[in-house]
Design a protein around this nucleic acid. Structure first.
Length: 553
RNA sequence: UGACCCAUGGUGUAACGGUAGCACUACAGAUUUUGGUUCUGUCUGUUAAGGUUCGAAUCCUUAUGGGUCAACCA
């Protein structure tokens, strides 16, 4: 399949570079800022960067762009490493932009010495106003003409902590009238008396992204520095610094970030959802974070497959979340153990069944020949899904109804003889008879039925909690309007079933085990499970053509 | 009203001057002891107008539409 696939534009560039002998091997990097958890959009970038060096000779680094100590934390570093590994990738070198603070400071001094940088005393507001607008040129700072000696002195005093936060900045001296706003004397260093998660209080000046990212790539000899489209205008500055500093010429390439409908993929917005308690945490199963998807029951394989299918390009996009769901169903269908769980129970008494408990066998996974079977107990009282019975069924309802026959999965065919109701007319019980000669696997009854139901023997039923999830937002693109994206939160995104009834085999389940609950969907055992009550998260439902059919009429 | 980026079915992505293909979705059918899975088939597309060419989704021009850029964030 990979060999059949056509190349994306980055692979074409790389193959051309390799063919031309420009490089013997390629080096890429995944460069997150440790200020939040990774999300599905990052997965795309991870698969791209690491995937490229699996396909072509070379390697990929994990580099934390940790140049802003006030937002960065070790907790995020750890989660990012865990997520990258969980996705199935291993980096060559673990690096930090902060590893290069000394070198970066040296670079800054070089620019000063060559008259290409100056210390500015303007306030943030002043800098903003004199920057101009995209259609109007900016004006030069009065401090732009300071002597090299003065700049050197001031910059080293900035470093030694003589000035308070925000008092001065180091700026590149480029062109205040440049078409590209980023070339209008961009700030290179700012003063921040803040504890850094790695360098502690060694520094009180920190480089800006633009003065750290490109040079870090260069220091690591990154051949292909891949980032998203919003950094296109940064490339000119990136190249300018490489040229002036005369350092290894990494080249930046940009691709369009992947957007997915009915969710948000922005660390800032995800952080808001966490802080304002709209979700239970970064790993809430409704979140688009890697940790959320993991807790939801997604597999690394399915996420990688998704990233591969959506591809890489430069145009704006909004990927249908249905494709992600397709990918996880496809994988889980192959690997998930089948179990029976009744969500909304209706009691059936099999009137001609003996009092004994019979042990039946049911396959663990019909997709797997080596999957084996597990025992399932059957007795005269069982539970079926309330929605699998209708007193007045529509046509093509292949389930239970008065006088109608149906098969109990891996067991017998039963017929509904009598409907018992309570005082309010609510159906409380069904009296059925079973056909002993219709036993699964050795059916000689000659009866053929259209429907097969999942069921659980009442006496052996295991009470479990189910958490059912729906999309977090009720509109395709919550960020596409003036309104606060949180106003589009779907109030029905979480539904908890406190008491569902599971077959006893589920007792042996462990955290993170994945199952298909027959005719319902895929579920994963959650970490909130206790010995008293197992908790399962619904990963995704099965395709349900009957639901569609029923909706039509 | 500047610069830059982008434009192919409902969605995502191919076609590198020579038959617009693949996947998802939707729809129809077959199989099925999960109305699952699997299998078969069908619908739907080159933003527009000019130009170059024997031939244009592809090259050129213009228009239109969308996106990005004015944080001491990344």
């Amino acid at each position: 399949m990979t060999e059949e696939r056509s190349l994306n534009f980055l692979e074409e560039i790389i193959e051309a570079d390799l063919r031309a002998g420009k490089y013997q091997q390629i080096v890429t990097r995944f460069p997150p800022e440790p200020n939040g958890y990774l999300h599905i959009g990052h997965a795309s970038s991870i698969c791209l960067n690491f995937g490229l060096t699996q396909r072509y000779p070379g390697y990929t680094n994990l580099r934390f762009d940790d140049t802003n100590p006030t937002t960065e934390e070790t907790e995020y570093v750890e989660s990012i490493k865990e997520d990258v590994r969980w996705l199935g990738f291993e980096w060559k070198h673990e690096r930090y932009a902060s590893d290069y603070f000394d070198t970066l400071f040296e670079y800054a001094c070089q620019l000063i010495d060559r008259g290409l940088a100056y210390v500015d005393d303007l306030t943030p507001e002043q800098i903003a106003t004199q920057k101009g607008t995209p259609t109007q040129p900016g004006v030069e700072s009065p401090y732009r003409t300071r002597s090299i000696e003065e700049n050197r002195d001031l910059f080293s005093r900035m470093k030694s902590g003589e000035f308070p936060d925000g008092a001065r900045t180091l700026r590149a001296k480029i062109d205040m009238a440049h078409q590209n706003m980023l070339m209008r004397d961009p700030i290179l260093y700012r003063i921040k008396h803040a504890q850094h998660h790695r360098t502690g209080d060694k520094w009180c000046i920190y480089p800006m992204y633009d003065f750290a990212h490109g040079q870090s790539d260069s220091i690591e000899s990154i051949t292909h520095s891949i980032c998203t489209l919003e950094f296109v205008p940064h490339r000119e500055l990136y190249d300018w610094l490489i040229e002036k500093l005369e350092i290894y010429p990494s080249h930046q390439y940009e691709f369009a970030r992947r957007n997915i409908n009915y969710t948000v993929t922005s660390k800032r917005k995800l952080l808001q959802l966490v802080q304002e308690r709209h979700v239970s945490g970064w790993d809430d199963p409704r979140m688009s974070t890697i940790s959320g998807l993991r807790r939801r029951g997604y597999t690394p394989d399915s996420i990688r497959e998704f990233c591969s299918r959506i591809g890489v390009a430069k145009r704006e996009n909004l990927v249908d979340v249905g494709l992600l769901e397709f990918c996880v169903r496809e994988h889980l269908n192959k690997i998930a153990l089948r179990r029976m769980v009744v969500v909304d129970p209706l009691l059936i008494t099999i009137t001609n069944y003996s009092g004994e408990v019979e042990e039946l066998q049911s396959e663990n996974n019909p997709e797997s020949e080596t999957g084996g079977t597990r025992p399932v107990p059957l007795s005269s009282q069982i539970l079926i899904e309330r929605s699998d019975f209708m007193e007045v069924p529509p046509k093509k309802f292949f389930r239970l109804a008065p006088g109608q026959m149906v098969r109990l999965k891996s067991a017998y065919i039963i017929r509904c003889d009598e409907v018992i109701k309570d005082g309010r007319g609510e159906v409380t019980e069904l009296k059925c008879t079973y056909f002993p000669e219709s036993k699964s696997g050795s059916d000689t009854s000659g009866i053929s039925v259209k429907g097969t139901l999942h069921w659980v023997s009442l006496a052996q039923a295991l009470p479990v909690e189910l958490r059912l999830y729906d999309r977090l937002f009720s509109v395709e693109d919550p960020t596409d309007s003036e309104a606060d994206f949180k106003s589009f939160l779907n109030p029905q995104s979480l539904q908890v079933i406190k008491n569902a009834y599971a077959e006893p085999a589920l007792e042996a389940a462990n955290e993170s085990d994945r199952f298909q609950f027959l005719r319902q969907g895929y579920f994963v055992m959650d970490k909130d499970s206790t010995s008293d009550k197992l908790v399962f998260n619904k990963t995704v439902g099965l395709k349900d053509v009957w639901a569609k059919e029923a909706k039509k009429s």
